[in-house]
Lab assay of single mutants.
Amino acid sequence: MTVRVDGVDYEFSSLEEAVRFALKMAKSKGAEVQLHNGTFHVE
């Protein structure tokens, strides 16, 4: 599972870890999280 934040990809071994990271980053940026074909994008 890959989480992309500001064009940088972060790899996670589990969906749970990836979701937690994506939500944490989105909250800190006041951004939204989108899921596309198994890849999260924080914008």
Rank of each mutant, 00 (worst) to 15 (best):
R20F: 07
A22Y: 05
E11N: 10
L23E: 13
L35G: 03
Y10R: 01
F40T: 06
R4W: 06
V5H: 03
R20D: 11
E11L: 12
L15D: 03
Q34Y: 15
E32H: 13
H41N: 07
V3R: 00
M1V: 12
S13W: 09
G38Q: 06
R20N: 10
Y10G: 00
R4E: 03
E43Q: 12
M1G: 08
F40I: 12
S14G: 03
V33E: 02
D6S: 05
H41M: 08
L35F: 14
M25Y: 05
F21Q: 01
A22M: 04
G7F: 03
A31L: 11
V19H: 10
M1E: 02
E17L: 06
A22Q: 02
A26S: 06
G7K: 02
E11R: 12
V3I: 04
D9H: 05
E16W: 11
H41R: 04
D6T: 01
E11A: 11
V19K: 09
L35T: 05
A18W: 02
L35H: 05
R20A: 13
Y10W: 05
V33F: 05
V3K: 00
A26T: 03
G7R: 02
A31G: 12
Y10K: 01
V33G: 03
H41D: 08
E17N: 03
T2Q: 05
S14T: 12
M25V: 12
T2D: 01
V8W: 04
T2N: 06
R20C: 15
K24R: 09
A22V: 04
A18D: 00
R4Y: 04
V3G: 00
G38N: 08
T39Y: 10
F21V: 01
V5F: 06
K29R: 08
S28H: 14
M25S: 04
S28Q: 14
A18T: 01
N37R: 04
K29M: 13
E43R: 10
R20W: 06
K27W: 14
V42E: 05
E32T: 14
E17V: 03
V8A: 04
M25E: 11
K24Y: 14
V33N: 02
Y10I: 03
G30R: 06
D6K: 03
F40E: 07
L23C: 14
S28K: 14
E16N: 06
A26E: 11
H36C: 15
Q34C: 15
V33T: 02
V3W: 02
V8S: 03
E43N: 12
M25F: 04
E16V: 10
A22T: 02
V3F: 02
H36E: 06
T2W: 13
R20Y: 07
D6L: 06
E17A: 10
V8R: 08
G38C: 15
D6N: 07
A22K: 02
E11Y: 13
H36V: 14
T2P: 01
V33L: 06
S13H: 09
F40Q: 08
G30I: 04
L23R: 08
R4K: 07
L35V: 08
L23W: 10
G30V: 04
M25G: 01
A26K: 04
K27S: 15
K27N: 15
F21R: 00
E17P: 01
K24E: 15
D9E: 09
N37P: 04
G30T: 05
R4D: 01
V19E: 09
D6E: 07
A31K: 09
L23H: 11
S14A: 03
M25K: 03
F21L: 01
A22R: 02
G7P: 00
G30F: 07
Q34I: 13
V5P: 00
K27H: 15
S28V: 14
H41G: 07
V42L: 05
L15I: 12
M1Y: 15
F12M: 01
S14L: 05
T39E: 07
D6V: 01
Q34V: 14
K27A: 15
G38T: 05
K27E: 15
E32M: 13
T2M: 11
S28M: 12
F12E: 00
R4L: 03
D9N: 10
A22S: 02
K29V: 09
F21K: 01
G38Y: 07
L23I: 13
M1I: 13
E16F: 12
G30H: 10
E43A: 11
R4G: 02
S14P: 00
E16S: 08
F40P: 07
H36R: 13
V33Y: 03
D6I: 02
F12R: 00
E11F: 14
Q34W: 14
D6P: 00
Q34F: 15
G30C: 14
N37C: 15
V42R: 04
G7N: 06
S28T: 12
S13G: 09
A22E: 02
S13Q: 09
V8I: 11
V3M: 02
F40A: 09
Y10N: 01
A31H: 09
N37L: 10
E43P: 08
F12T: 00
Y10E: 00
G38F: 09
T39L: 09
V5L: 03
E16Q: 10
V42F: 07
Y10S: 01
E16H: 08
M25W: 09
L15E: 07
L23S: 06
E16Y: 09
S14Y: 03
N37F: 09
E32F: 13
Q34G: 04
S14Q: 03
F21C: 06
A26G: 05
D9T: 11
V8F: 06
R20S: 10
D9I: 11
T39A: 10
T39H: 10
V42T: 05
G38E: 04
E32S: 14
V3H: 00
N37Q: 07
L23Q: 10
T2E: 01
V19L: 14
H36T: 07
K24V: 11
V19T: 07
L35I: 11
L35R: 03
A26M: 09
V19I: 13
D9P: 05
F40K: 05
K29E: 13
V42K: 07
G7W: 02
F40S: 06
R20L: 10
V19N: 03
T39V: 15
H41P: 07
S13V: 08
D6Q: 04
R20M: 11
F12Y: 01
V19F: 14
A22I: 05
F21H: 01
E32V: 13
E17F: 02
E32K: 14
L23T: 10
R4M: 04
E11H: 13
V3S: 00
G30M: 04
V8D: 02
A18E: 00
G38A: 04
H41Q: 08
S14W: 03
E17S: 05
T2F: 13
F12V: 01
T2V: 10
N37M: 07
V19C: 15
V19A: 08
V42C: 12
A26P: 01
G30Y: 08
V33D: 02
G30P: 03
G30Q: 06
V3C: 09
V8E: 05
T2R: 10
N37W: 06
V8G: 01
A18H: 00
E17K: 05
N37I: 09
L23N: 09
L23M: 08
G30N: 11
E11K: 13
V3T: 01
K27M: 14
K27D: 15
R20E: 13
S28C: 15
K29N: 12
G38W: 07
F12A: 00
E43T: 14
K24C: 14
A31R: 08
V5G: 00
L15C: 15
A22W: 02
V3E: 00
A18C: 02
G38D: 07
K24H: 14
V3N: 00
L15Y: 14
G7T: 02
V5S: 02
F40V: 08
N37S: 05
V19P: 00
S13F: 09
V19Y: 15
M1L: 09
T39P: 06
F12Q: 00
E43C: 15
S28E: 15
N37K: 08
V5E: 01
E43H: 10
A26I: 09
E11W: 14
D9G: 05
K27V: 15
S28W: 14
E11V: 13
F21P: 00
G30E: 07
V5Y: 07
V5N: 01
A18V: 02
E43L: 14
V8N: 04
E11G: 08
V5K: 01
T2S: 08
F21T: 01
E11D: 07
L35K: 04
D9C: 14
K29H: 14
A26D: 07
T2Y: 12
F21A: 01
G7E: 04
R4F: 05
L23K: 09
Q34R: 14
L35S: 05
E11M: 12
Y10T: 01
G38H: 09
H36M: 11
S13D: 12
V3Q: 00
A18M: 02
A22H: 01
Q34D: 04
V3L: 02
D6C: 13
H36K: 12
V19Q: 08
A31M: 12
M25L: 06
Y10F: 09
Y10Q: 01
S14K: 04
D6Y: 05
K29F: 13
E17T: 03
A31D: 05
K24G: 07
L35M: 10
A31C: 03
L15F: 14
Q34K: 13
L35W: 12
D6F: 08
D9W: 08
K24I: 11
E32W: 14
